[in-house]
Design a protein around this nucleic acid. Structure first.
Lengths: 106, 106
DNA sequence: TTATTAGTTCATACATTTGTGAACTAATAA
DNA sequence: TTATTAGTTCACAAATGTATGAACTAATAA
């Protein structure tokens, strides 16, 4: 299949959403760009770990990086990422609501 | 942080998109429900493997399963999943276009 | 020049996901 | 009852992803 290659690339971009720290970063950057240390201050954890996650997200094209002097600023590559992320959050919320309804029946 | 739990749940739902076979299944189901063997016929591979992927997607609430006699029918839990998936595909396509432009400059 | 800030890269250990084939279950047909 | 169809579950090996701390680089300040 010729399409299998597309599915691999597509899944690869989607993988960039599949980690709690990366979701947190996407959430943070919805209000505009932030530099590395600002992101680190909010998320906590090791800087090496954050740096690696940001690198992955940038390589997969969901973040843009812009260096200015000592600082490295990160932003979402497009609003499509934020939109997709919000839709998946809605899917989560809908699931949790359904589970609540099931819970009440028991 | 109280939010960290949300990020974990959110990432967990997003993880369900991060595999080529699962992307292919989401693509397939955009036209409506299909039973297991119909999906297998299109995607190929081992039935045990497909079954496990479908189970994960169902558990994470992005697919619904409906048993009818011998057959197990699968469908997208909501159009939000399909929409998010299409947005991420657009992100991929935009990236590939940008790479093309860079390539031409070289 | 030396020190500091801001972040990246690397090696490695650890954890999670994935693929595989065999064994299993549940529904229907012979 | 026995066989077949349709799919699930299981155990385990292989591959991938993640966290950690130490070493590194590049830009600015003293």
């Amino acid at each position: 299949m010729i399409n299998k290659q597309i599915f691999e690339l597509h899944a690869d971009v989607c993988k960039a959403l599949g980690h709690p720290l990366r979701i947190e970063v996407i959430d943070l950057l919805q209000n505009g760009e932030l530099c590395f240390s600002d992101i680190l201050e909010v998320t906590g954890g090791l800087k090496s770990n954050l740096s690696q996650h940001l690198t992955v997200m940038t390589n997969k094209g969901i973040l843009k990086a812009r260096r200015e002097g000592q600082c490295n600023y990160f932003s979402l590559s497009s609003d499509k990422v934020a939109k997709a992320c919000r839709l998946m959050r809605e899917v989560l919320v809908d699931n949790l609501k359904k589970q609540q309804i099931i819970l009440k029946k028991i």
